[in-house]
Amino acid sequence: MNGLLALHIVAGSLALVSSGVALAVKKGGRSHKLAGSTFFYSMVVIFLTAVIMAVLTANTFLFLVALFSFYLAFSGWRFARNRSGEPQWLDWLAVIIMVSSGLLMGLLAFKDYPQFTSTSVTLSVFGSIAIVLGLADTKSHRDRAATGKVRIAKHLTNMLGGTIAVVTAVLVVNVSMTPPWLGWILPTILMLPVIIWWRRKVKA
């Protein structure tokens, strides 16, 4: 567990730095592509270590959050690479897992109804985002719509979503907030308007 946790932290730090570089440099250039690839493969390591630790500790919450976070990075990476808009079987499998995990998050969030814990609030927010994004990407795959500016906007949205996941993890681990669920959703609240504005700018 100590080794897994150390690897998880190193990958998380690398993902945080590389996402910042990808945002700062010229989009589409060599530096942007290198930073984006570094971010994606760091997220792969984060995902694998998180899943193993979740299984070893029987932590369903960590397992679902790992699936949710990795989908954002994976789909963002796929939208960057797939210029044709033609989805592959991996894309379909990913959206199925994303929507399914969102539904499971919703079910677990209401397990303790009518009392809502910090975990319930977090799962409600993440579950809703997972379902909305997963269904939007499903429609995009079905219509072969992810080309041109739409593809770039989707790449931007999902990669920034993955960045939010990394920032959230760093915030939750290092900063104590009241109520506890605030640390889990604050980065999403702050970054969502930026993502919406940037999407509209790209598509315009």
Rank of each mutant, 00 (worst) to 15 (best):
V132T: 09
G127S: 02
T119Q: 07
S100V: 13
L160P: 00
K149W: 07
V150R: 13
G162M: 10
M105H: 05
V125I: 15
G106N: 03
V167H: 03
K154G: 06
R142Y: 08
K111R: 11
W89L: 10
P114F: 11
A145R: 07
L123Q: 12
G127T: 03
R142Q: 09
D143P: 00
A130L: 07
R144H: 09
I96H: 09
T147M: 10
S100H: 02
K139I: 15
D143S: 11
M98Q: 15
K149E: 13
S100M: 10
N82E: 11
T119C: 00
G106I: 01
T117P: 00
V95I: 06
L93Y: 10
L156E: 15
V99T: 06
V150Q: 07
D137K: 10
A136C: 08
S124A: 14
V150S: 07
W92I: 13
T168A: 07
L156M: 09
G134Q: 04
V95M: 06
R151T: 13
A130W: 02
I96K: 13
S84N: 06
L123D: 05
T157H: 04
S118N: 15
A153D: 12
I152S: 09
T157Q: 07
T163C: 13
R151I: 08
T147H: 03
V95F: 05
V125L: 12
N158W: 04
L135M: 14
N158A: 02
G102D: 13
T157R: 07
L104D: 06
A130C: 08
L108T: 00
L107A: 12
